[in-house]
Computed example of a mutant assay.
Amino acid sequence: MQHKVRVWDLPTRLFHWFLAATVVALVITAKVGGNAMQWHLRLGHVMLALLLFRLVWGVVGGHWSRFASFVHSPTRLWRHLRGQASEETAGHSPLGALSVFALLAVLLAQVGSGLLSDDEISFSGPLVRFVSGEWVGLATWFHSDLGQYLLIGLVALHLLAIGYYVLVRRRTLVRPMLHGDKLLTRQAPASRDDVAARTGAAVVAVLSAALAWWISGLGAG
């Protein structure tokens, strides 16, 4: 018997697709350069707002969106890697949870280093004036060299994992991120996704956007 469970609440799904679109746009504007760098800067502030939202939602959001649900024991991770997992996972698998943490960490590092970067031509982060030239140089190097390739690599691995699950495991990871539900062979807790939860998420989103906007204006102070 299969059980239909709401795994991904609407705020998490919207975050996921906005994040994907913003990452693509950031990579494109960075590669184009020139006048596109102004859009790159604006999109960086959008990414900051998204990440701030996700950090908060990872604490107060739906059950499977909370970071607490991402924590798996080393034994379970090892069994998962060896294909010996005895039960299906409603939320992220042990390896999937690690990939989410890694992606969020790299995105935070990219946004943080972008706020401190200065290409000495047309791009200067809003926090440059608050740190020494040595830190600006280090942040600029990370943001333009190491960080972007770490991000592209993680995104590529993410897409390969989706392809593996679809083609080999015959399980789709995309559809649940569209409508929120999964069909499971066992009962599992459902993520809260009612009007109150969505209203709370909207408040968090507005506050996150406001904080990102305030940070973006520090460079003009």
Rank of each mutant, 00 (worst) to 15 (best):
V195Q: 11
E88N: 07
G112S: 12
L138M: 15
W213S: 13
V206E: 09
L167S: 12
L51F: 11
D9E: 07
Y149P: 05
P94V: 02
F67W: 09
L151C: 13
N35I: 09
L157I: 15
G114K: 00
L159K: 03
S124D: 02
V106W: 02
L183H: 13
S208L: 05
V203H: 02
L167T: 13
D181M: 13
V71W: 08
S208K: 06
V56S: 06
H92D: 00
G133M: 04
T172W: 07
W57Q: 04
H45S: 09
Q38R: 13
A161F: 11
T29I: 00
S117Q: 02
I215D: 09
L104E: 07
V195I: 09
G114A: 01
S216N: 13
L218I: 15
R6A: 11
G112I: 03
L26W: 00
V24G: 09
D194M: 08
R169T: 10
L50V: 11
L50Q: 05
V24P: 09
A161S: 14
H179Q: 11
L51N: 14
D118K: 07
V131Y: 03
A30K: 00
A85R: 03
F18A: 15
F15D: 01
L77Q: 10
P11T: 06
L107F: 09
G114W: 01
N35G: 13
S93M: 01
V195K: 07
G217V: 10
H158E: 04
T199Y: 07
V60Y: 07
V100D: 05
L43R: 01
S124L: 05
I121E: 10
T199I: 06
V166L: 15
W64L: 00
K182Q: 10
A30H: 06
L157K: 08
T172V: 01
A85T: 08
G96W: 00
L95R: 04
V203C: 13
G219C: 10
A109Q: 02
D181S: 14
R66K: 05
H80P: 05
A210N: 04
Q110G: 08
T185H: 11
A188R: 03
G147I: 05
F18I: 08
G221P: 05
A205Q: 07
G217D: 08
M47T: 08
S86T: 14
A196P: 09
L26M: 12
R42S: 07
W57D: 06
H63D: 08
Q2M: 15
V168N: 09
R54S: 10
L218V: 15
T172P: 12
H3M: 03
L211S: 06
T75W: 12
V59F: 13
L116Y: 01
P126M: 05
V24F: 14
L51H: 04
A109E: 03
